[in-house]
Design a protein around this nucleic acid. Structure first.
Lengths: 253, 253
DNA sequence: CAACTTAGTGTTATTTTGACACTAACTAGG
DNA sequence: CCTAGTTAGTGTCAAAATAACACTAAGTTG
């Protein structure tokens, strides 16, 4: 490959971060999605036919920020949440992954070359829904929690990104006790089990699950019970942060 | 954040792919590294003080290619190897990860904005050293295998990238039977065990290792023995591709 | 107080793991 | 040709982890 060829083929791409922000509520796993307005363009470059679609929250990475920082900023702008479990899991870079007509307006806003492709670094985040305060992002776009099973068709390749995030989560949750990140501070073993079941998409044996969880020594039993439920109230537990931190690097051998 | 702010902060970055290409030979894990020439620049932008350093093979992603395609192209250009196990494992995007003085010449070759930062998508690849035919890359840079334990200081953040690749490999090899990708077609259980030991950096019990491997049903015993070794010759095995493919998605439950 | 709902608990059989030591087969060198 | 050196190959037992399985307890509602 010589320099001429390079001139042809290398237009710097845009780089964005997209976040798969997962929460858990009413025994359902949910994902935070935003509405995105865009207009198609006619051949004169004029906008027409305004449309709305739904997407994962994301934005361009700023020049002066680290990828992780960028992901945290975007999460903060959108949800106000700070300081939570977040992890980069994959870059997506199919040259056609952002359809130009769909994205023209957004790219113009950025004043960058609208011809360039967009490569995105995908992150996933786990949040406690109780902590979440809804907030429009810096472009005043509405955001909403969607149950995983009811996610509509998303912009670009965002359905695929979401799908892969869920795969990764499934894998991780069987190896690291990540489930806690999604639950309120005090929780019952039943809640924890239902969370695992909705992540793994499979039923677990109650007694085996409890034995396993207790053997990890991650649970601090509170001397407290559920209130106001129409059945036997469950004992509540807290999560033992100290033991968790010692596990960094894995439960697995 | 308004549009003016965006103008300031968003200069499109360069996006490159860096490959951690691992091979196994003489009971050692090795990584393929290239020599990189560069010149520092003085304040007038003139090159002086030509230097050489050692780096992971990598290059800019072309406009029209997928990230995976790009990684495969780079591997092919450098080694002639095609069609092997390769996997994206992480994007690195610290804004200062590519020092400008070190990289000025390379970026100029590309005719892109030398002010822009470089974000890289890192891949790792496993190759059978027996298949490898050394080859200079398109910039005629020399390449060489370095034993993992003797890797020198590398350009940019490449030591960190390598380190993380090894972590990922360590993890994967305990969950998926990837080891085979690194061995010749016919191999002995002793070779396989030594490979695992050098990846994991720990000794394994011979009898337990063999029991485990045999239980996976991935080995086809050939009715053939090692030739010309100064000790009891080992039985040779092949790897059962069919069973392996059925395991896609994991050995783990 | 009956019906309903979810919480909580223990045993057994099976599988998996980890620890451990000797004999077999070949070559090289005297 | 025999000895020394080297790696290959093999089995058992105890401990730990897993999977399958069913009943009673504690609360609320109507």
């Amino acid at each position: 490959m010589n320099t001429q060829e390079l001139n042809k083929v290398n237009l710097n791409p845009h780089v964005s971060v997209d976040c798969v922000i997962l929460g858990y509520d009413s025994n359902e796993l949910k994902v935070l999605l935003i509405e995105r307005k865009y207009s198609e363009e006619n051949e004169n470059g004029q906008a027409h036919n305004p449309k709305l679609d739904i997407a994962l929250p994301g934005n361009l990475v700023r020049d002066d920020e680290d990828l992780d920082t960028s992901a945290k900023r975007i999460l903060k702008e959108l949800t106000g949440i700070d300081n939570i479990y977040m992890e980069q899991f994959r870059a997506f870079g199919n040259p056609n992954r952002v359809r130009k007509e769909q994205d023209a307006e957004w790219l113009k806003t950025m004043r960058t070359d609208p011809q360039a492709r967009v490569i995105t670094i995908a992150y996933f985040a786990l949040v406690k829904l109780e902590d979440y305060v809804p907030r429009a992002d810096s472009f005043a776009r509405r955001s909403e929690w969607y149950p995983i099973k009811k996610v509509p068709k998303l912009a670009f390749d965002h359905n695929e990104i979401l799908e892969q995030a869920l795969q990764v989560l499934k894998f991780k949750v069987t190896h690291y006790p990540l489930g806690f990140e999604l639950l309120p501070e005090k929780f019952s073993l039943g809640q924890l089990q239902r969370l695992y079941e909705s992540i793994l998409g499979d039923d677990l044996d109650k007694r085996n699950f409890r034995r396993k969880m207790k053997s990890l020594k991650l649970l601090i039993p509170l001397k407290e019970k559920q209130q106001g439920v129409a059945h036997k109230p469950a004992e509540l537990y807290m999560f033992n942060m100290k033991v968790y931190e010692q596990l960094q690097g894995g439960i697995l051998k």
